[in-house]
Amino acid sequence: MAAANSSTSESIPVTPAAPGGRRAFSGDRVYAGALAAAGIAILLVALLIAATTANTARPALARAGLWGFITGRDWNPVEDIYGALPFIWGTLVTSVVAIVLAVPVAVAFAIFLVEFAPSRSRSLLRFVMELLASIPSVVYGLWGLFVLVPLLREHVEPALGRFSFLPLFRGAPLGVGTLAAGVLLAIMILPTIASVSVEVLRTVPSTLREGALALGATRWEAVRIAALPYGRAGIFGAALLGLGRALGETMAATMVIGNSPEISASLFAPGYSLPSIIANEFSEATSALHIGALAALGLILFVVALILNIAARLLVRAVVGKFERSSS
């Protein structure tokens, strides 16, 4: 055997894309170029969203300054006064209500689907989740306006009114308001949180569960001891994803929140959210300042959604990645 000698003149290194200039190669190059262009397009979309929104928002931010804009409490297009605080408040309150209501139900739903449901009903539960997710938000809004709002006005809000020592439940039961928006958003983000939680719980290795059961644990204890602690970060990520959706959800909130730029501690009071004001005023805005102020609200929404989504994806990926590696 000759000694290894890769530097001899007759040994030719091989590269996968050897230069040739033949027809077959140009086809490969065109194809690879097209694919790469599509990949680049994704990055471009991200840049485009950031750049276009920021650029459109500039006039308003230049006038009031970012901080002044965020803390401004008045919104009056006629006088060209624009402050974002009522909308940030409304978005915050509705999203928190939505998360508080949706997370327990969604996680319990996911636990039931993964851990307790008979295997035959699993696909049915999955189908329920998909259906919930596939109903357009404007249809939820329609339902919210004509079903949920009367229900809240006539039954739920009067009942909650007994707790009026809490500022949360003060005021006349109008139906429309932040409570209605929060409940509707909770229904809409339920499938998001549930499906990501299902994905997380399914990656928990069955050996963990079986180990707990073998020690004499009940099925619930096996879930509590084995599955939930390992999936905790992922479920938290699922909740963050749901929060991100609730913040940006437009139509449903717009139709039931009352559209009134007030900051109130009561959930019964009408409010206004970031997406709703954009939806309502953007097509009628004419001055660059008004459009800019609406775009600036969009920019706030975009940045917050971005942060939430990045955090959520990292959390979910950490959990799912960990178990996929260990199980393969």
Partner: peptide, 15 residues
């Protein structure tokens, strides 16, 4: 980026 963009509010994309 694709994962994160999936969560961008649709109203922002409208802008």
């Amino acid at each position: 980026t694709a994962e994160v963009l999936s969560g961008v509010p649709s109203i922002v994309v409208g802008i």
